[in-house]
Design a protein around this nucleic acid. Structure first.
Lengths: 210, 210, 210, 210
DNA sequence: TACTAACCGAGACGGTACGTCCCGTCTTGAG
DNA sequence: CTCAAGACGGGACGTACCGTCTCGGTTAGTA
């Protein structure tokens, strides 16, 4: 309690409030991540930068990737919402445009790519990304699509989960395997094709006619 | 021991043919990769296992990832082909089924995922994957789609590159972000929806009618 | 398990008698020491093994070494005695043989060596060893020697403290710096030489004659 | 690259001559040891102070203690010699006085004590101390005693190794277990008693008479 | 054919991160 | 309100890897 204040060199031994430490660790991880990318988020550097000890960090996060993931999610607590105006194409287009915007304009694109990339060899990170990021968004989209089915905008037999992979998955694909550009035009075309299909009318009839 | 000095310990003196060394390095990298995954492919271990020196390996590959990529491509020289029977849906479905098969049944799935994952933080690997793997396959698919346009099976204004992302990209998405299963059923539904669209007939007319 | 919550997990709440806790701590320390040597006696492990908290242990012992020392002394409460039959050589020989026996046959040898060793860099342990172990034995020996002087078996001007170092100290030397064997033969020779000296009779006369 | 010299920040990567590195490591270890005692000699600190990497240090020394030992021996390359003037008592007294001097006056006493102490729980250090320090000195003393036997100054049946333990061992005992002072008076008394024995003349006759 | 010069692979080096263990201090929550 | 349970900062351990650089043996070029 420092009755006689003034000690300050010897400070910082012993226990500090957990919440305080956690916040500092996450802040340090976020700073490193935004500055130098995911590989810069090591337990070692985070410990030094945050003033926390490695022991403490190991107690709370299973891997540097998982720590980075939480740091990202905490600093990017975007409202999870999928506005429903009743106009399927418009709503989805708006969502996808925003998503492409996020991946390309802000610094988030690289970080998300690195998170997903690292998750391929880090089970804990993979679980964290799925639980706190991709899965909630998938569920939200599917709920919206269920409404669209009720409104008669989507076929009754449409595979709603598949739509997510065709729309957002295609964007992730262009993010992670950049053989083709990821932009608004792509988003718009994606929405259209997913809804109306790429087949010519004659071939379409053939496919459905059977 | 070593009564006749140099019988086999000294074997490795003098310079060996570059091609021979390269082959051994790639073989060692492949063995490590299949046994313990991509993180096991380090210059250090490959050097020990292959008998080559680190210096040599550094001369030829810019990063462990790039070495692993080449090791994978060399040991998986699948024929690049896209059989064209004239039946668009069937041809694409066959391709996608084979692709899903590759990603799920063989050990390739994990390795491809790890390669793409690591490529997010390894420019050299990213370039190698694109140049030797994804890009050639994208071009092949687009060429096929161009034939399908000529045959009147795809709309004239269809974005052919986008189709690749919707079909293969969706598969990669389920591989890299495993929130939903990647199987034959998914492949089939993917083909159908990409060609005919998910919109109900009424909403489809609305979208196209305008 | 735990149908009625807290049946035995919560057992350790409320304060337990200090004596009981002390005993458990010492028992845990002794167990660790005999099993894995002195370095295994850490506050951390003793706390876990004994169920006591580190705070408690810190309150009673200044260092792991001091704790280990007490654990050893408590479990080895050998009667402090120096039987006096009146026969100096026999009495001392018996004592020394028993001492060598202790150091070599039982597991005590290693532990005593480690205690003295660690005491070189642990003031508290050094003090504990001296106070509870070496010093009492030194005093006992000196008292016996004083009797021997009175009986006319030792020279009046003999340095009695020095005799302790020559007898027991030599044994400690062979324990701590094992360049030569520590056995009964050594003990016997030690006693003889300490009493009669190593000089030849002529050289002895020369030395004393002056 | 770096055709134009002058870079100096990037220096110190890659390999440096082994001898140079070894010397710097030993110097750093010695400095730490003399300044703060043996516990200050950790691989970590030595690495930082010497500029060498931990990997390198681990390659050459099995434990911090062994490193410290070598650092001590290197900086204290005292001539190994045992001057033989033909006067046994004088020669031994001179040696012992010098030894006591070393242990008490210079800073060596504490270091030797800590080395021997740590050796109790460090096999590698124990071996190093024996091989490079105690054993050579023991042999030297025994050689001298053999000459004294030839000269008729020591009894023919004297156990020469035992004399070492009685003389130097007793000193080590007072160093390591400081229950009694270690000084010149002690050294002198030690020499005398070891040669002529502590028994009174009557008791001595009794002992020998048998 | 001997003899030297250039080259190149084997592997030692500095740097950095990993994950673990321990010490000594301090917050916190159970009694 | 007290005190032990145990979380915290600090720091060392021993290992693995990266990327750089020295060293010494081989080969090729000279006498």
């Amino acid at each position: 309690m420092e009755t006689h204040a003034g000690t300050e060199a010897k400070q910082r031994r012993g226990r500090r409030p957990a919440a305080e430490v956690r916040a500092e660790v996450l802040a340090a991880a976020a700073a490193l991540m935004y500055a130098d990318g995911l590989p810069a988020v090591t337990f070692e550097r985070v410990a030094v930068r945050s003033g926390a000890s490695k022991t403490t960090i190991y107690k709370w996060w299973p891997s540097p990737g998982a720590l980075a993931a939480e740091a990202y999610f905490v600093t990017n607590k975007t409202e999870l919402q999928f506005p429903d105006t009743g106009d399927l194409a418009n709503d989805v287009r708006a969502q996808l445009r925003a998503f492409v915007q996020l991946l390309t304009q802000s610094g988030s694109g690289r970080i998300i790519a690195e998170l997903i990339g690292t998750a391929q060899t880090d089970q804990d990170l993979s679980a964290a990304v799925s639980k706190h990021y991709t899965m909630p968004r998938r569920i939200l989209a599917i709920r919206y699509f269920q409404q669209a089915v009720k409104r008669g905008q989507l076929r009754d037999d449409a595979d709603l989960g598949l739509l997510v992979d065709q729309l957002w998955g295609a964007c992730y694909n262009r993010l992670l395997i950049p053989d083709a550009p990821l932009d608004q035009k792509f988003a718009d075309a994606l929405v259209k094709n997913t809804l109306v299909g790429a087949a010519s009318s004659t071939y379409r009839s053939l496919l459905l006619g059977t």
